[in-house]
Write a protein that binds this DNA or RNA. Structure first.
Length: 997
RNA sequence: ACCCGGGUGGUGGAACUGGUAGACACGCAGGACUUAAAAUCCUGUGGCCAGUAAUGGCUGUACGGGUUCAACUCCCGUCCCGGGUACCA
């Protein structure tokens, strides 16, 4: 009987599905454990071998935990709303709902083949009304809440209204209002006015603001969706634009998002990425008088201690004071500069970081020494951060230093020799000089002194700033959740909960609406609702993914997004696995939503994920060849032409060193592809590297026949060092036919993508080797967290391991070889009891496997299985009582083969009575019998002065403490040293003795 | 530029708190079985040197230095690669 993995895997996958063996209940006496994968966006490209890496790791852990006696929630779903489906619809005329459904089917089919233990009855799909109804509902909770800064939590907006009625705008604990009003004034405001004021407090709010507008995509993007000035999806240019937008007031949660990081198990790198994004800084705001004006210039600085080193001020070109203070001859220059800055796109600014700026003609006054300080404008100061103005200290800040040098502004040195005049020194550990009352003080200490002084003088105060901005929450797109909002004039009104869901209406054509509005704008009938106009923008991709982990807990609830009972039972996600790319997007948003829902009392925990593991990316190996087009001109200077008599190739060109450079064409136009071994360094500029589909390449050797068949449209000549292949025949350089040649490609590791023709589909691997091999091989490749290129080379080793495992049970010729020593009423093959050596091998292996699994070291886990199976093979151990323990431990890694063998040894003759379904899932994870692990004697290496010399054998007594062993070792060593007394013996963990003579 | 990771055989990677570096696997070489191939099994495999051999010696974890009886592991400096951030005052 051989290992027929296809039959086995198909059989068990069907069985699991039919019997719903992975369904999990919210009611169990067992302890709970929640294992979650970042759910996928169902793209049209389907899964490639990189996607399942994290899924397999989490599946192994979920299965392991289940065998260990936990009630494990391990669900899967789809993040189905999003831009790509809509772009695809626009380009191909297929409705997003249809393409998304088809993609989901394909994902599901691919996922099922890998044998995951998901409870599919809990599947979520963010684009289904049953789901997004609750996304809209949570949005309403955010809309109807404000952040109470005093209590540091979200509260109902009705609470805020009460505060306004009692205290007016001076109510305690709330953010300062743009408008100050008394309780009486508040009551007198009309509804529209009240709504406008409340909008400044809502956690989901609508406002005008500068947003990242992407013309090509026709929508705004959140900060984390813009990379290097272009859109993350598609790489289209992004410009700043003022638009009416919905936002999430995530900035109110900045401190709690930071604080929460201390309570979760994320990698240090991940925590740092998030805290960098939040970008908390402690500083002060200081007001500078402006010579000849009553206005004050307010700056933000983290280094108030350097105030005596201020040599100029810089104000953002967009700053409101610029127009007012520009003066004299500088007016024209300022206007010109402002126009110039406006003309520059975000991308240009990022690409060429030039030092630019302009003097305004105005001067600020240093409040401590009365010095006049020129005020400049420059684009390096950002309008959106701090106060949009800075005090520049060139001796202590690199940017200020460069600016001063560029514009020849004299530099004041306040740190003596610590500043070398060549570059700025940002130290806090220098002693201040030239600094009035701060002279002789350590900069670090001077910070507080200045802060107190400015507060005393009422010219400033301590201030905390954050880089993070409120998150843009609306998109001018169709394929997203509609807002449950109706506009009446300038006021936004929330729909009632009973009106949810606001279903996304069907549209045939997705053209943008007017005034930068989304496609829904065009649906005039739908738009007009209850005497108002519906919000026609939709929510961004991250809306649905900000709370899906809660929906899995209670997926069919049509009364609530998730019952409190369910969320209290499952609580935090114990283990969350996904890529780093969501560090500052999804992970931050979902943390904020969780905190808001916690504040409002809907759930009992305020951090969604207890432990986060980031899986590395699996890159593909692309195969490339150089191509030279026939219309390309030849570089005659470096080449030497040699006539060759043929109509096919009138001549060829040869470099003086003998390497082939180029062949010209005959009457027909050919594309020339060059084998890697015949392209010289200097020719590379004249050629382009073309991606070759990897299926035509094996070990860097290209199958030219197959490629030619695939690329029929192109007439290709393949050129190698020794000749060329044209029209299917190989010729040498004398135009004589020759035997076939090897065409060598160039390999390069890059992201797996259709575009690079380097995608490896898991389906193909599973067809050839089976899902169990695939699972174990993905783990065997290396640590889950590590990025690595996909390489199929080693997969044979894992496959061999499974076959070897199979042979412990069944032999191709002999049939069943496993035996049982346990008595059974049925007739069956007898056998002897397992020996100590067999038990020892087993438990030693299982102990290591358990440790490896616990610490996510699945690659060494797989290795340990290999060692264990090799040992059992060597021992010719075919005993059921040993092997069945092995199978249980293997079940998380290779569930299909484990199930099959488990079922075979429990149902065949000798298997004994079979209870229940007989599935391995009912088994208990083997406990380690430590008595087999205790060694009675051990070899100790002895070294002298650090150099290994020999080993001694010491009899061990488990009851004796380590000290006894040291004494023993000492005696042995002394004897061995023939009377010489060692100075020192180091004995570590029963492992080694080092002797110093 | 700054902040994180990381650099180990021909290759992927082991070595968990410093304790015989290179587990396990691929590849390669040799052998067994076979008419042959596949499959399977066995042996060898960091480098250098000595020996008929068993074996022994030296060297070796990017580079230079240090701490230690002992360093892939800790400390200092240099180089290289990957990721993140990018004028955030």
């Amino acid at each position: 009987m051989e290992y027929k993995f296809r039959d086995i895997e198909e059989k068990w996958q069907r069985e699991w599905k039919e019997k719903k063996v992975y369904n999990v209940s919210n009611d169990s006496p067992k302890p709970k454990y929640y294992v979650l994968d970042m759910f996928p966006y169902p793209s049209g490209a389907g899964l490639h071998v990189g996607h399942p890496l994290g899924y397999i790791a989490s599946d192994i852990y979920a299965r392991y935990k289940r065998l260990k006696g936990f009630n494990v929630l391990h669900p899967m779903g789809y993040d189905a709303f999003g831009l790509p489906a809509e772009q695809y619809a626009i380009e191909h005329g297929i409705h997003p709902a249809i393409s998304t459904a088809a993609n989901i089917d394909n994902f599901r089919r691919q996922l099922d083949k890998i044998g995951f233990c998901y409870d599919w009855d809990r599947e979520v799909n963010t684009s289904k009304p049953e789901y997004y109804r609750w996304t809209q509902w949570i949005f309403l909770q955010l809309f109807n809440s404000y952040y109470n800064r005093g209590k540091q939590k979200a509260e109902s907006i009705t609470q805020l209204i009460k505060l306004f009625e009692q205290h007016g705008s001076a109510a305690p604990g709330i953010a300062p209002s743009a408008l100050s009003f008394t309780p009486q004034e508040w009551k007198a405001f009309d509804n529209a006015k009240k709504q406008t004021i409340l909008m400044d407090y809502r956690l989901a709010y609508c406002g005008y603001g500068e947003v990242n507008w992407c013309e090509a995509l026709g929508t705004v993007l959140a900060n984390d969706e813009v990379v290097n000035g272009v859109s993350e999806r598609g790489g289209h240019p992004v410009v700043k634009k003022k638009l009416r937008q919905w936002y999430l007031r995530i900035t109110e949660y900045a401190d709690r998002l930071l604080e929460g990081l201390e309570r979760v198990e994320f990698s240090e790198a991940m925590k740092e990425m998030q805290s960098n994004w939040i970008g908390k800084s402690y500083g002060a705001e200081i007001d500078f008088a402006i010579k000849g004006f009553n206005d004050k210039l307010r700056v933000y600085t983290t280094r108030p201690d350097t105030i005596f080193g201020v040599d100029f001020m810089v104000v953002a070109p967009e700053h409101e004071l610029v127009d007012k203070i520009k003066s004299g001859t500088q007016v024209a220059a300022v206007d010109e500069y402002v126009t110039y800055v406006k003309s520059r796109s975000e991308r240009e600014r990022m690409a060429e970081k030039k030092i630019t700026g302009c003097f305004t003609g105005a001067y600020a006054i240093n409040p401590f020494d009365g010095r006049e300080i020129p005020i400049w404008i420059s684009e390096y100061v950002l309008a959106g951060y701090g106060t949009g103005a800075i005090m520049a200290v060139p001796c202590g800040d690199e940017r200020d230093f460069k600016f001063a040098k560029h514009f020849n502004i004299p530099i004041t040195n306040i740190i003596g020799a610590v500043y070398n005049g060549e570059e700025a020194n940002a130290t806090k550990d220098a002693i201040l000089q030239n600094s009035g009352f701060l002279n002789g003080m350590l900069m670090r200490d001077a910070i507080d002194v200045v802060n107190n002084k400015i507060e005393e003088m009422s010219i400033g105060k301590k201030k905390v700033n954050y880089k993070m901005r409120d998150a843009a929450f609306s998109r001018q797109r169709y394929w997203g959740e509609p807002f449950p909002i109706v506009w009446k004039g300038e006021a936004a009104y929330a729909l009632d909960e009973s009106e949810l869901p606001v279903e996304l209406p069907h549209m045939n054509e997705l053209k943008p609406g007017e005034e930068a509005e989304g496609p829904l704008w065009n649906l005039h009938e739908w738009k007009n609702y209850k005497g108002g106009v519906r919000e026609v923008n939709t929510m961004p991709g991250y809306a649905g993914s900000s709370w899906y982990f809660l929906r899995y807990m209670d997926p069919h609830n049509d009364k609530e997004f998730c019952s409190r009972k369910a969320s209290d039972y499952w609580g935090q996600v114990d283990l969350y696995i996904g890529g780093t790319e969501h560090a500052v997007g999804h992970l931050l948003y979902s943390r904020m939503w969780t905190k808001a829902l916690y504040d409002l009392g809907y759930i009992g925990h305020d951090e969604p994920y207890k432990k986060l593991v980031n899986q590395g990316m699996i890159t593909g190996i692309s195969e490339l060849a150089y191509r030279f087009h026939s219309h390309h001109s030849l570089d005659t200077e470096t080449s030497e032409t040699i006539e060759v008599k043929t109509n096919l190739f009138p001549y060829r060109v040869q470099h003086k060193d003998g390497n082939i450079s180029m062949i010209s064409m005959g009457s027909k136009t050919y594309s020339y592809y060059f084998s890697a071994d015949c392209v010289m360094e200097k020719q590379k500029n004249d050629m382009s590297l073309i991606h070759i589909p990897i299926k035509f390449v094996n070990n860097n050797i290209l199958n030219i026949e197959e490629l030619r068949e695939e690329w029929k449209d192109e007439d290709i000549v393949f050129v190698t060092k020794n000749g060329f292949n044209c029209e299917g025949k190989w010729y040498n350089w004398d135009q004589e036919e020759m035997s076939s040649e090897k065409f060598v490609t160039i390999s390069q590791s890059e992201k797996m993508s259709k575009r690079y023709q380097n995608v490896v589909n898991p389906d193909d691997i599973i067809d050839t080797y089976g899902a169990d091999t695939f699972r174990m091989y993905e783990m065997f490749l290396g640590p889950v967290e590590m990025s690595k290129p996909w390489d199929t080379k080693g997969i044979e080793g894992v496959h061999r391991f499974l076959k070897k495992l199979w042979r412990l049970f069944y032999d191709e010729v002999k049939g069943q070889v496993w035996t049982s020593s346990a008595p059974s009423p049925k007739e069956r093959a007898g056998g002897e009891a397992a020996t100590d050596a067999e038990w020892k091998a087993l438990y030693k292996g299982l102990k290591k496997i358990e440790e490896d699994t616990e610490r996510f070291s699945f690659n060494t886990g797989v290795s340990t299985f290999m060692i264990l199976v090799n040992e059992l093979s060597d021992l010719k151990c075919h005993k059921k009582e040993v092997l069945e323990k092995l199978l249980i431990a293997l079940a998380p890694y290779a569930p299909h083969i484990a199930e099959e063998l488990w079922s075979l040894i429990h149902s065949s003759p000798g298997g004994g009575d079979r209870e229940g379904t007989g599935t391995i899932l009912d088994a208990a994870y083997p406990t380690i019998e430590t008595k087999y692990l205790i060694e009675s004697s051990k070899e100790y290496p002895i070294s002298i002065n650090g150099k290994m010399r020999t080993t001694i054998n010491i009899a061990l007594d488990a009851s004796q403490p380590e000290v006894e062993q040291i004494v023993l070792a000492n005696e042995v060593v002394q004897k061995w040293l023939e009377g010489k007394t060692p100075k020192k013996i180091i004995f570590v963990k029963g492992k080694m003795v080092n002797v110093v003579v």
